[in-house]
């Protein structure tokens, strides 16, 4: 297994193209190293992408831009992502209790895992776009379209994620994140992120309800039914309850970690909790 640590993006792209599917870009290593025995036979080249200058958080042209190798704790601590419009990032990271993982894992790694992780659920609720780079240039794919299935993304051979972008949220936007797990140091069993845009009178203009970790495909999914209940309505406890019940349009997986029935219950509770958190922000 070869190891490369390029310092230029083009160099990285060239390596990824050269080795094709036998190359693996790694960032925080937290997933890769934990699963290296399984990946051993397939991987010929490991391309460390941490030295490509992709660790940053900035706002340009009303767009929030987060470099792919930005760590979860960098998101937690950065002013932009821990307050104001984007404090949902810090709130999401806060639900991952393991400090060492937060110091290592990157937003790019989270996005690419497309499984039992938290950040993609939040990014889906915030209509994020994933910026993909490769020898042929860069392209943007919406979070919605990026995940194809468990550990399966829209990345083509030779490509990698370079940045995550968030459009400026509509005014008065507020978010909420909630999570269910088995112990305090666990992968999520269910997570829910919501984003609401409210009029001055409290009417909901736009709603996103995103459910992760529990879904059949293993990747985050929006509960369209819950969103429809919320839009154009004034949000009160009864409506929250209704939206929570409606979130059963997201089908849940059944495995040894949790039954689909329990996950469905937790999705409902999670939607309720996340909406309440969002409302409480006002």
């Amino acid at each position: 297994m070869e190891y490369y640590s390029p310092t230029e993006l083009n160099e990285a792209y060239a390596l990824l193209s050269k080795y094709g599917d036998a190359a693996i870009p790694v960032a925080g290593n937290t997933f890769f190293m934990g699963h290296r025995e399984e990946l051993f036979d397939e991987v010929e080249a490991v391309v460390n992408i941490k030295k490509l200058g992709l660790s940053y958080i900035k706002i340009e042209d009303d767009t929030l831009k987060i470099g792919a190798t930005t760590t979860l704790n960098e998101l937690f601590n950065h002013e932009i992502t821990s307050s104001g419009d984007y404090k949902i990032f810090a709130e999401t990271v806060n639900e991952l209790n393991i400090n060492e993982v937060r110091n290592m894992a990157t937003i790019g790694g989270e996005v690419c895992i497309a499984g039992e992780v938290d950040m993609p659920t939040t990014l889906l609720a915030y209509d994020a776009n994933i910026i993909i780079g490769g020898s042929n240039g860069t392209r943007s794919v919406s979070m919605q379209d990026f995940h194809l299935g468990y550990l399966n993304t829209a990345l083509e051979t030779g490509e990698m994620v370079v940045e995550v972008q968030l459009p400026k949220p509509i005014e008065n936007a507020r978010g909420g994140f909630s999570k269910f797990e088995r112990t305090a140091a666990d992968l999520p069993i269910v997570n829910v992120a919501v984003r609401l845009a409210l009029e001055n009178d409290g009417t909901c203009k736009e709603a996103r309800v995103s459910v992760g970790a529990a879904t059949l495909a293993g990747v985050p999914k929006r509960s369209i039914a819950a969103e429809e209940i919320l839009v154009n309505q004034k949000i009160d406890e009864a409506l929250i309850e209704k939206a929570a019940v409606a979130s059963n349009d997201v089908e849940c997986i059944n495995d040894f970690r949790a039954s689909s029935e329990l996950r469905a219950l937790w999705v409902k509770c999670g939607v309720e909790d996340a909406l309440k958190k969002a409302i409480a922000q006002g």
Partner: peptide, 24 residues
Amino acid sequence: VFDDETGAILNPNFMDYKVVGPMD
């Protein structure tokens, strides 16, 4: 957790065999 079909253990690690931690 033993797999019903094979008798293999599905959770042979702390990721899925959940030991009580300091916050629990």
